[in-house]
Nucleic acid binder design. Structure first.
Lengths: 352, 352
DNA sequence: GTGAAAGCGCTAACAA
DNA sequence: TTGTTAGCGCTTTCAC
């Protein structure tokens, strides 16, 4: 029994392929990794050997030497209710909003052709945040893409302090030296206001987002801006939480306080859908009696009845850009933090 | 300059910790991994050294020797339109359905306390499927959790043939020796039928799921079953695609052909919501004129107006069970494939 | 109870 | 152009 081949069932290694092809491990490695300077004939022999043996390079071994995991952490961050009774409620809430699916779509589409893979993480507790930091520090992921859903989220600062590569979706509430992508929310809200006014609405109200989120503040500010410019200094405001239900509650309140209103801007589509239901229940026709505009152009906007006029946020593109910024950062580690601002567009459908 | 410590900024290794604690690498490893037989005093010293140096064990190095990635592939599989023009359309479609978010929630909640992490993968093309198989064969993931959205999906067979650890959501269309979890869809549809009949509905129709999916067939079969038992041999059927829009189209058709119907069972909530819109547009009150039942008890069911009576599919629990089965399989590799069947429950709300 | 030493499978100098 | 060799950081026998 001389130089026995590996027992059947064992996973073949570079060594096995090298033996089968009659070359050295280094040569096989070169062929597998597409490094130049390998004789075509040998290349072919190696490829044969690879397919005969069914070889797949071991990732751990490769990562150990290249110091690359080819993986990024895609983390949804933000304190839910920190001491949440229900373990899964944070993740459930996250996916209830069509927003996150769009982020995943954008990220995956960018990463996949580049051989990188996203690990999904949720960082809603202090412990979970530490795990994210550890995960990247261990080299399990090369960096992090962070979608923060909460204003006072400590994760961006934690990551920045640890000097780990990361990119945020949306400007952090407390400034941190981290790259991010964002939308010009203020301008988007201005577009909505201008459209309502152009339509002839004169008794206009808005359902804002949560005031502790920058995005909530910006969208409200932009809306008020344009309204004020046209002589409407006072605008009725009801604060919502970006959920459909909160949109319903807010709409009920606005309707009770201002039964004669003829235009509503909801700071996102989900709340607009909720508002739409309530308007219908109160016998108001949309858009004839009350014009309604949402924000985001999420999937519900098109499927809603009537379909929703809304401000488009190109989430998929923005998410892809996040991924691009992160990969850039990985290849050029000491490039300074960058931010990219996207421009919103008004999408006119049937609700206004 | 004797035995210089690593340059600042370098990532500390076991070696560094060992030096700081004045012990060997083996001892540090034991403490870090909680192996018994270590003197408490030394344990303490090592822990000190770990926190002083800011040590994090390198995953790649550990994986290389343990042969565990502590990662699983969470894959959404199924041919979309194979030659899809739009790169991202498959992922977009996947997330448009609230179903997938629930799967993620269940999986993550089970995996997280066990130190495992999910990598998100989409396998909608032949190439993407091969990548999933490679990914697991490379040891990048210890196994796969597969949610298949298409009948003739080749992935389960590919995975099974490669002998890789995997668990499916839903029974595979073509039988394969793979563990899976599933719901008793037939029984769920029976519950819906019985409820409509008990309510007094006599001119009942159904919007089925796609007939090329087992789940579509099962839900229709169960519904027909119970209807037939009560003397309704013929039930009007319109086939849908599990999307809201297809539910609308189907409802239009049913209404055109059977203007007098008084009860509808839609094979999922999304289609039920679509049907609900159409019924309203045609002046039918729900549930007074037409009773409507959905399936899944997804997030839209409760927020719909009127709220949807539906058959609950405990997706989160089922997803967690999938994860459990997979981890079991990893610790006991030659246990035979198992399947777990969940029982549906009727959730009565306002639509029927 | 602890340490020395041998690899896990791979890449990347460096030689040839 | 190819092979030899030295690790990457860790776990794990096996002695002591």
């Amino acid at each position: 029994m001389t130089d026995a081949p590996r027992p059947a069932g064992a996973i073949p290694t570079l060594e096995d392929v090298a033996r089968a092809a009659g070359v050295s491990r280094a040569t096989v490695s070169r062929v597998v990794n597409g490094v130049r300077n390998v004789d075509p004939a040998i290349q072919e022999a190696v490829r044969q050997a690879v397919s005969v043996t069914g070889y797949e390079p071991n990732r751990a071994a490769r990562s150990l030497v290249t110091r690359r995991a080819e993986t990024i952490a895609l983390v949804v961050s933000g304190a839910g209710i920190e001491e949440d009774a229900d373990e899964g409620s944070f993740t459930a809430r996250v996916f209830a909003d069509p927003f996150f699916g769009r982020v995943v779509t954008g990220v995956v589409n960018y990463l996949r052709p580049r051989g990188m893979h996203p690990v999904l993480m949720f960082a809603e507790t202090s412990r979970a945040r530490d795990e994210v930091v550890s995960y990247v520090r261990q080299g399990s992921a090369d960096g992090a893409l962070i979608v923060s859903t909460h204003a006072q989220d400590p994760l961006p600062a934690l990551i920045a302090d640890a000097g780990l590569p990361a990119v945020l979706y949306a400007r952090p509430a407390r400034p941190a030296r981290i790259s991010h992508v964002d939308l010009d929310h203020r301008e988007g809200a201005r577009l909505a206001a201008a459209h309502l006014l152009a339509r002839g609405c004169r008794r206009v109200a808005t359902i804002s987002g949560p005031m502790d989120l920058p995005v909530g503040q910006e969208r409200l500010a932009g809306f008020r801006d344009t309204m004020a410019q046209h002589g409407h200094e006072e605008v009725a405001v009801a604060e919502g939480l970006f959920t459909q239900e909160s949109g319903e509650v807010a709409m009920e309140r606005l309707l009770a306080e201002h039964p004669d209103l003829d235009g509503v801007f909801a700071a996102n589509d989900l709340m607009a859908v909720g508002a739409c239901h309530v308007l219908r229940e109160h016998g108001r026709r949309v858009p004839d009696d009350v014009a309604l505009i949402g924000f985001d152009d999420s999937s519900v906007a098109a499927s809603c009845r009537p379909s929703l006029t809304t401000v488009r946020q190109p989430v998929e593109d923005m998410a892809a850009e996040m991924a691009r910024l992160l990969l850039d950062r990985l290849t050029a580690p000491d490039r300074p933090a960058t931010s990219v601002l996207f421009e919103p567009v008004l999408v006119v459908r049937n609700s206004a």
